[in-house]
Amino acid sequence: MSGILPQLLFSGLAIGCIYGLVGLGFIQVYNAVGLTNFAQGEFVMLGAYLFVSAVVIWKAPFWVGFLFLLVGMAVIGFLFTRGVYKPTYKAGRFAFLLASVGLSMALQDLVVLIWGPVPLYMPRLVSESSFNIGNVFINPQHIIIIGSTILLLIIQYLIFQKTPLGKMMRATAQDQFAATLSGIKVPLMIIFTFVNSSILAGIAGFLVGPVFSVTPSMGASAMLKGFVGCTIGGWGSIPGAVLGGILVGIIEIFSSFYISSAYKDAIVFLVLILFLLFKPKGIFGETVSEKV
């Protein structure tokens, strides 16, 4: 029994990393254009399906499948900017939001049309059998998830803090008008932002696929939890979104164990409502530095 607490924490951390990645994509888009993309969850699902089709159906090697996922998600991000963001962002505040809701629903059915309704099995990089450290059982895929998330966060940090492109993207997110006057190609930066966030979602799908199965509805709940993570962290704060997501994962695992796994999504919703009631600005608040 003594091993149960660290074990729950560990699984919670792993699942939470996924929500953190979804939330990160949310926040980047929100900071850049002030909108929430309700199809972000379906991008998670698409990432998983793209990888499965390459590796399982076309029998491509693992790395080719991953490359296919990256390119596919980039294309989806680009098409999304051109096809959904660009024609709707001027038509009132809900046009984009509703359009993304419509897209998310259409995508859920589209994958059924293409891949069928049966959940797909995603191959793993590592063996399925757990091993233990002390009396803590460790699922190897969880280690992959946590490791990849850390790696991704480092890459994101380097892109946004160290490269000219990343700095221009941040500048665009903070003040589009001033960015335009500084000679930045603002529409291009917005495309890059959407592409980046959809790649993040796709990788999240690739990571979570082996833990849950690959189904048309896998994105919907990931999106809600990514959103709750952003709220806990405070909208606008990038580390807040990641840590908030991790917290949601831990809450989910703990409540499945101690209360009921059937109710876990309802409990996450309860957490959202409680946070909105008592700490609507989240733990980190909307940071002045990122959005004024």
Partner: peptide, 8 residues
């Protein structure tokens, strides 16, 4: 699918 595309 049709409903979603319709909204879009």
């Amino acid at each position: 699918f049709i409903n979603g595309i319709l909204i879009l």
